[in-house]
Amino acid sequence: MRAIMLSTWLTLFAPALLAADLMAFWDTPRHGGNSFNRLPPDEAYFRALKKYGASWVRVSYDKWRPTQRDFLLGNADRYQGLVASDLATLQKVLDNAQAAGLKVVVVPLSLPGMRWSQNNRGKFDDRLWRDKRYQQEAAQFWRDLASALKDHPAVAAYDLINEPAPEKHGDLYEHASAAAMQAWYRKARGTARDLPAFYTMLAKAIREIDATTPIMVESGWYGAADDFAYWPAPLDDAHVLYSFHMYEPYAFTSAPNLRRAVPYTYPGRVPFAGRLENWNRERIDAYLRQPLQWARARHIPMNRIVMGEFGCVRRVSGCVAYLDDVLSVADRAGIHWAFYSFREDSWDAMDYELGDAKVPWSYWKAIDEGRPDPLERHAMPAFEPIRRRLPDH
């Protein structure tokens, strides 16, 4: 009788308890980094991040060498199931993170009908946001991936897609006013460009397989902090984290700024949303206040909000001050964050352990030859705003 009662109890209540346990990881502010490397990271890589005090890492696999056209997907033009050899590579990376004591958020850069532009000859792939057939394939992909990963102890969340942009070719300009976004959404609602509806469908597909793992969803227009403005409500799932990225003003933080005859500096006047603005601590605070106000108005606690990426090109003047001001806002709010990026082996621009110097030719030669880059990393001043805040308290 006791065995029967225990079995019944486990059937009824264990899934909910497991879900609560996984969400409990996110109950206090968590600090980490992004891993968007071209080579699958080994245990030493994760241990180096853990040594700084990080508790989690956001891992994307789309730069890894695929068995077929697209890593894990096989072919983003027509999804037919996970590629077993690619999945084994991903699981090995998760094992490496687990051995180092880091939790992982798994995030694809591509889905069926939405191949990441850098794997698509630089072209933005809008098919997912025009044709719901691809969205059904994306739901099947996430069923398959959740089935494969749901029991892995390193996995702390599924980030459904990196930097979605259904608005890009949908007649909504970037950084539009909240009123303009809401008017646009009234027309887009129910179409393939309805991002909250798309997420709802993916979440439902995952919950058919996995009732416990938290789901992370990003705002539109490449994860812009102001782009939750048109979302009328949170998703109908108690285990969801809401994520945005912070690279504004992009004219300052991005690589093209280095190529300007006179680069923009921070603090300073920088173009944003079609006009020249003065960007300083107060302007960053005002900009980042938008997703926080959206969440509070919908009774979403701050421990369910994530700044999933942020950064600036390490060699531009004012990058250190910029990082410090962005993190000051995030930490005052008590939200989670992950800096971009940790020891990236294909793009040095936001690898803050390299300081503000150019990388030597050996870095690029290693990329050409498919080898690990040979550079040593240190806690340089450019990394200091992040380093001193990484340990979770």
Rank of each mutant, 00 (worst) to 15 (best):
S362K: 14
W9M: 10
Q118W: 12
V320G: 11
D356Q: 15
A16T: 12
F13L: 13
K187L: 09
T8S: 14
D42R: 09
Y264L: 02
R387V: 01
I161Y: 02
V320L: 05
P372M: 03
R260A: 12
D131G: 10
P234D: 05
D237G: 06
T67K: 10
S110C: 01
D62K: 06
Y266D: 07
I300V: 13
L195A: 06
D27Y: 07
E218Y: 03
D285E: 10
Y322W: 00
A139D: 06
L323S: 08
A48T: 09
A273Q: 08
A157I: 03
L10K: 11
I300W: 05
V93T: 08
I161D: 05
T67E: 12
N303K: 10
K132A: 08
R269S: 14
Y363S: 12
K358W: 10
A225S: 13
I284Q: 13
L172T: 04
K63N: 13
E344N: 13
D159Y: 03
K63I: 04
L49H: 10
K187Y: 06
Y134A: 00
E43I: 08
G53F: 00
P249E: 00
R130W: 00
R133C: 10
S254K: 14
A255K: 14
Y52I: 12
P232Q: 01
Y242L: 03
L17T: 06
C319H: 09
R127W: 00
I305W: 02
T28Y: 05
L149A: 11
R304E: 02
A321I: 04
A295D: 04
A286V: 04
R30K: 15
A233Q: 11
S85I: 01
E369I: 01
L323K: 11
E248V: 11
K51A: 15
V320S: 14
F71M: 04
R298D: 03
A48G: 10
Y250A: 14
T89C: 13
K365N: 15
K358G: 10
E376C: 08
H169T: 15
S243T: 10
F71P: 08
F339Y: 15
A179Y: 03
L160T: 09
P256S: 08
L22D: 12
R30L: 06
A211W: 03
D368E: 15
S346L: 14
V240A: 03
A261T: 09
P372W: 00
P29A: 05
Y61V: 02
R387W: 02
A14Y: 06
F36N: 14
R78Q: 14
E167Y: 05
A255N: 15
P108E: 05
A24V: 03
G53M: 03
P234C: 04
G113I: 01
G311R: 04
Y61H: 07
Y363N: 13
R133N: 15
S110P: 07
F342D: 06
M181T: 07
I386D: 00
L390V: 02
Y173A: 14
